[in-house]
Nucleic acid binder design. Sequence first.
RNA 1: GCGCGGGUGGCUUAGUCGGUUAGAGCACCCGGCUGAUAACCGGGAGGUCGCAGGUUCAAGUCCUGCCUCGCGCACCA
Length: 1091
Amino acid sequence: MGELDAVQLETELLERWSKEGTFQASIDARRNGAPFIFLEGPPTANGKPGIHHVVARTFKDLVCRWKAMEGFLVERKGGWDTHGLPVEIEVQKRLDLMSNEAIEAFGMAEFNQACRESVWTYEAAWREMTERMAYWVDLDNPYVTLDNNYVESAWWALKQMFDKGLLYRGHKVLPFCPQTGTSYSSHEVALGYKEVTEPSVYVKFKLVDDNASILAWTTTPWTLPGNVGLAVGPEVTYARCRIKEAAGEHWTGAGGADVGEEVIIAKDLMKEVLRHHVDIVEEFSGSALVGRAYEPLFPGAVPRGESTTAWTVLAADWVTTTDGTGVVHTAVMYGEDDYNLGMEAGLPAHHTVGMDGAFVPGIHPELDGRYVKDCDATIIELLSASGGTNGKGPSSGLLYREKDYAHDYPHCWRTDHPLLYYAMDSWFVRMTAVKENLLKYNSQVEWAPDWVGEGRFGEWLRNVKDWAISRERYWGTPLPVWRSETGEMKCVGSIKELQDEVAKANAAGIENPACPDDVDLHRPVVDEFTLLSDSGLPMQREPFVMDCWFDSGCASFAQWHYPFENEDVFDGSFPVDYICEGVDQTRGWFYTLLAVSTAVFDEMCYKRCLSLGLILDAEGKKMSKSRGNIVDPWDHFNREGADATRWYMVTAGAPWNPMKFDPNGVRETYAKMFLTLWNVYKFHADYAALDGFDPDSEGVAVHERSPLDRWVLSRLASVGQAYHENFVGWDFHKAARDLEDFMVNDVSNWYVRRSRRRLWDEADSHDKLSCQHTLHEVLVTVCRFMAPISPFMADEIHRNLTGQSVHVAPWPAGVPGSLEGATSDAWDEQAAKATATLPPQDSDLEATMALVRELAEAGRRIRIDANRRQRLPCAQGWIVAGPNLQAFHDLLAEELNVESIQVENDLDRFQQVELAPNFRALAPKARAHVNDVANAIRSADDPEALLAEIVDGGAEVLGVLVEEGDVEIKRVERDGFAAQTVEMNGADGQSLHVSLVLDMNDTPALLSKGMARDITRRVQAKRKALDLAIEATIDLEVWMVNGPEMMADDEHWVASETRAAGCVFHEASATPPSDAEHFEVDGTTVHFTVS
RNA sequence: GCGCGGGUGGCUUAGUCGGUUAGAGCACCCGGCUGAUAACCGGGAGGUCGCAGGUUCAAGUCCUGCCUCGCGCACCA
């Protein structure tokens, strides 16, 4: 029997699949089926694939394969995400172009060319991984987001939005990364929150015409030079406090206040903020402060311009007293609320910080030109100086306190630098205008798990913000909007339109480069076109590219170059049936798909979405390059194979739960599921070959087969049915765990073990044929069920058994996709049943066999308790109570090693009654006494008598009338017998107590027989050690010291079992040769030689 | 801070409507069985079911608070 080499098996199959075109065949075979549309979330190929990609691809693949087996037509177009910041950053690192200036000096065209190439860096690695793991997807005709066709479709979509008024140009405060020079949308920001501890400061804003200062708090000292206002809550109560005495020694950090100095702060926050003993001089509401002027902290940093409200106190109803001082420092350009308030109140809008993240000249000699995040200490120092930064503060300076403040702050998801909130020009999609539709379509999606859709994703949609889609970058889908000086705008939705507009501009005398049909829709090419506005002005393209999430959000139609081509294909495949990605895509792809389809088509995009949990390492830590705990899928592909890796990933837990990837788990899966399956198959195949078994020959009707056969077939049907239902409910892990358990425990450890002797029979027999058919049917069906999860071994075995690939085989639970009028939206159970191929179920038989197996185990326990070795037979075994097991008496006798099985009808001979309280029934009657009553029942002196009384109308126990339903009657073996009792659930739901009793008396015949078995076992082991062929014959000689009298029949039995042509049992006086094997059992020493 | 999902022997995990002694696998120990595979069977050791309260005759399960891990939201001053 050949050893299993899973890796070789798989690589050979891969070759075969590729030679035979099995993937295509599996699609073609369902050409007439109803379509099931899968949409691939495009990965970027400029990073190496890891084990988490294998997980996602396994779940994508298994659903597609499953649906295909159900008869659906499942085409699977691959895709690549090729634009965006990740690509640019890779290239920037490689070419050492760490700023936008550097890129422009290098040349935008050259830079973008480098990006275009960089995108494919790991394509080969992705392809190899994809093929090796058997993810069936069409990588030869994928959609690629950088293709002109794809970009053109994206342009078309933008124009739809533009025409609907959903695309607009705005000026907003956005999270901005000075390193990459670009702002981010909220879903990108969400990728980069990190907890940081930074100095926060309480600053005194000295009032003009008053000695008091208003205290305000900020966590971003770098925004202080930009301060132009203070916001107070009009309803909030503020207190004017006078410092009573100097602070104690516990003061830490910079800042302070002199005795007699006065500060204004929200009354509720005095305790929180003030570190001095103070007297409250006065209390007033915030509105009393409104309009008061204060001294600018950095005079001259912001020009006053026309503003009359600059450096005064303003009212804002969003000011709270949950933290800070109840006074909000307002720097118009660096906070969303600040900006809105500033616009309302007419504060000067002036940048104190450049796009490079450094202070602009003229702020302060010590700050100008420095990166703002490096200036915290300097600013604190400047404020603390006597008189403060403006020289008009108190002698204690303008800083009251500094305090380290820990909070989550957004960081650039690519460069890890802190983001700055920064007012800038940007383009937006008005998602807030279609919020209701987003919610409506989301509610129609079948989410797995459902709480992601309702909870996490729903939450996100309820808080939806306009989508900032423009990026001040180079490599991406260019924003197709041209704009004139006066703000006239035109959005271009196709190449044709661009050509028309260029022609129009050229006709008006504008000079433009050529615009051929294959014009590259990227920067800088498109930047060079100047178009003509309706009023005759030149228009330049808005110099942005799109958020790359917008690209992938267009995948459902842009993959088909819709609407320029493939209109019918698109119409037939939208919305898609199924997508599957990691839960981290909730705000990524899951959102952008829905956002685009809602804005463009006013429709949902996907009907079902499987959201996968994160992949953690064996310790439960997130896998990341920096931690170095990434698992390389090839470690397992090359050791246990892709089958075991995939099966492990599916069985490790619910798909949406975080998965701890334990390399040892893969090994375990291999040893259990795949070795077992393979050996069962080999067992079948070897005998089938030996006997010339033909599965297509006339079989044996199931009802004519042995109970063992009917049992395993019934189990197959039960497990298969549940397997299918678990698939439908997304519980792939439960399905696979149950199938594995069935394979290992029911098929291998019981059915095959019990059937071995049936196949040894060298003559053709009805029973042998039944067994072969049964095993054949079990294996074929198991292979079909497991094929979606682990497609290799299932195919190998299926091909060998049927001559056909499992991947074109039908799903055993039915093939609804092939039925007339089928849709992918619902499993038509009635219709599908007609095509199901599961064998008949017999639940009584399953329950009976469960009992038989328990009795067999009970027998082993009895022997251990009684210290009787397994191979020494017992004369007799009694089965007490329970159902009729006649059909299994032979089997049990063999398992138990007893000469005969008898049914004992007199229960009392071997069993006694035990009573247990039924709390559910008893509790309402006995109430607080239930435990006392329960104990009384349990410890009754004479349970039989008590039971009789209960049955006879009820017994009074501690004042409670105990009736039949109040107790559970348990029958257990009587003390003093070699017996065990097992419990089973009868067909009527009653629990039955069945005892097994073994006769422990020895007779010469039993001792002889037992010895024969021991000798046989040793000789067989020796044969195996000598590596003899199964049919090889031997000569056997046996010597015994202190042995039992051997019966002639037993000696013959030993000879025949061990295929001993010559077999000699020597007289007790004979001396064995010195090289004889020997062993000892129950006081007998046995020597033997095999030759 | 708010929301979601977790926390059950060394590890992985099951646990229904609240019901008697919390179930399995891996690893470990002892024993058995085997022409049966990296197998199988029996037994053992190993559990304050995150912590603390509460409801109840009875809580891994329900309620409240807290701790902790992960994820998400808000992060504002």
